[in-house]
Write a protein that binds this DNA or RNA. Structure first.
Lengths: 197, 197
DNA sequence: TATCAATACGAACGATCGTACGTAGACTAC
DNA sequence: GTAGTCTACGTACGATCGTTCGTATTGATA
């Protein structure tokens, strides 16, 4: 059920996700869905949580198979790109689709989106920090924050351009940009193998 | 009239922009607006064109006051950031708001959005090329394309995070990231003054 | 077995959506 | 002066929106 919701939301946005359309897509009745989630906001919140779970499973947990530090950071970026490129959600990156939808509209849904994004951004920053602590990246605190800003920026740009142009090329540009940023931060070239193609 | 439309679209998205709401916001009647633009698609197309005009005036034309080359490229990025930071549209960057709205929905509106985005991305790439031709950046063709990908990536990430967190900090991160990318491409530090703060 | 909570359903509500019509006024062209 | 074009308006239509009822079915608990 929530699988349909997250997939629909990735295309239509979080408030383009209507109960009626979700009913048609999932084969259930409208009132059934409305009752299950209480109201539309409830559905939106559940959808955000479900999307976050998928993201965690497909991106974060897979990266955790690598050791903390540069290896995990690189794996994280690799799985991140693959998650968008393979269209785990048919509208591309789930969070890119819903963040731009609610970033200007205060309320509980925006709060949930913000919380999920914060969790993700903080996680990236933490992984950068681990790589710095392990001596695999040569950055001060400010430089680490900068890298933790740049990497998702490259990814989200790739996601956006790929959707707009139905092309894989942006992902290659993002991966190469990530390699450059990591190399500039002192990463060993051998550690970046997953991002080369 | 179209001022209301672009501003509304920057917040609600391009299909969250309803004729009824636009009627209320602009003080005109619903049927008046529907007649003027023929139908909703016409309104959306006109809104895209109007948003593009504002963007051209506020960002591109101001950067054209600088000489072709690195100076203009830096000015372009500076005015780009200022355009988002000062909320020329109350929903932040107009194109960021509408691109994520239609990137998965084929049709004339998507085509118009894509055309506008292509125009913009090509323009950035051209300015990078001018700076390379002038010997102010040391890049091959592939490196130039890479830089033309990275600069808007940093900008759009700043726009998104600023909207989500109501903070100016992301713009500083983007500006610094731009400086680093330009410096890595061989830009003279003195030319980046506009991007330092 | 009887009870209770949860789930799914059809039906209907007020509101808003996009659209289509007819009309009234303003302006230009002849 | 008259005809024609354009803009703005009110009204109404069918469709869809989110939401709320009452009800039937299910499954676990007492």
């Amino acid at each position: 059920m929530l699988t349909f919701a997250t997939d629909l939301a990735s295309v239509e946005g979080l408030d383009g996700l209507s109960i009626g359309r979700l009913a048609d897509a999932s084969g259930h009745s409208k009132s059934s869905i409305a009752g299950l989630f209480q109201n539309k906001v409830g559905l939106q919140l559940a959808t955000v949580a479900a999307g976050r779970d998928v993201f965690m499973r497909v991106v974060v947990e897979r990266a955790r198979e690598q050791e903390r530090g540069l290896d995990r950071l690189v794996a994280l970026m690799h799985h991140l790109i693959e998650y968008s490129r393979t269209r785990v959600f048919s509208g591309g990156c789930f969070f890119a689709a819903i963040a731009s939808d609610f970033d200007s509209k205060p309320g509980p849904v925006r709060d949930a989106v913000r919380e999920a994004m914060t969790l993700w951004y903080d996680y990236v920053e933490m992984q950068v920090g681990y790589a710095v602590d392990a001596g695999e990246l040569d950055l001060d605190a400010s430089g680490a924050a900068q890298l933790a800003f740049t990497l998702p920026a490259l990814y989200e740009q790739a996601n956006a351009r790929s959707l707009l142009y139905s092309s894989d090329e942006p992902y290659r540009l993002a991966a190469r940009g990530m390699c450059e940023a990591l190399t500039a931060a002192g990463a060993a070239p051998a550690a970046l193998e997953l991002l080369r193609r």
